[in-house]
Design a protein around this nucleic acid. Sequence first.
DNA 1: CACTTTTATTTCAAGCTTAAAATTTCAGAC
DNA 2: GTCTGAAATTTTAAGCTTGAAATAAAAGTG
Lengths: 159, 159
Amino acid sequence: MKPQDQSAADPASKAHLRLWLRLLKINRLVEAELRERLRLSFGTTLPRFDVMSALYRNPKGMKMSELSRLLMVSNGNVTGIVDRLTEDGFMLREAVPGDRRAARVRLTRNGIAEFERQAAAHEEWVSELLGGLSPEDTRRMADDLGTALTLDRKDADDA
Amino acid sequence: MKPQDQSAADPASKAHLRLWLRLLKINRLVEAELRERLRLSFGTTLPRFDVMSALYRNPKGMKMSELSRLLMVSNGNVTGIVDRLTEDGFMLREAVPGDRRAARVRLTRNGIAEFERQAAAHEEWVSELLGGLSPEDTRRMADDLGTALTLDRKDADDA
DNA sequence: CACTTTTATTTCAAGCTTAAAATTTCAGAC
DNA sequence: GTCTGAAATTTTAAGCTTGAAATAAAAGTG
């Protein structure tokens, strides 16, 4: 490829940057709205919702480190959020039989019931907020992102 | 459409939720990487980069409230970030002639030079991190998101 | 002009977040 | 068994973030 092929300035990097700025924007828009609704409707926060969601899908409980890895946040971060959710009676720490260092966290009966209420509203809200995307665009974009994510390595699974 | 058309459970909301979880994931992945690189290479953070970026595009400066609205963060948040960037000599507050309440913030010569270094690296990093997306997918996704964003109302503009 | 309301910003308390250091326990080497 | 290093978690300090309250000044009302 000849040098002047780069006619209209840099090709890919500007396009990627443009996409990134839009990803950032929709993320902030949706997160801000979800945060406010969670606060007003349930008196909770997004990080709390995320932790409860992870535990809801793992009824047997998860170790702190598993939680931290899945949610892609630091260990110390999870400690604080779980502390507060435990104070509220939504979850509890259990000893791990063979390992006195580890702690297994799981939702209480109360936490399960509370999360189910929150999750139903949450799903409706997300759908409302992404309502501008047609079913086809939605599916295609999710698939494209799936590709990008597996190429970024990390856990290639997904529910 | 007949009732049993909804065969595979709820249609749109689950698809939107799936997309949302992937948007969230790629966002965290990219942000985590950018945050670490900004820290290691420039000793700065994403919020600081965002503020400097906004001011770089507005050489005449911006009022605190304009900054806060553009970046979609709270007023108090901007105050703290600008305070620290000012201590570092990258920006300064100026009085607004006709309004003694307001403050106009702009980059110093030093701040401009520093941001230009950071922005060049940042663009490369983003392109690298989104490298898994082909030029076509990248463009299409950005366009689709643009649609979703204008439908979410708010400022329909964009650079 | 006095009064009220709106606007611009900062301050504050609480919670989120990270990276790094500190603890505690486990597992392997000897 | 003792030592050394790795692993799981918590603690800590600093910065980010919000919503609400506090300040201060501008703009409208009468």
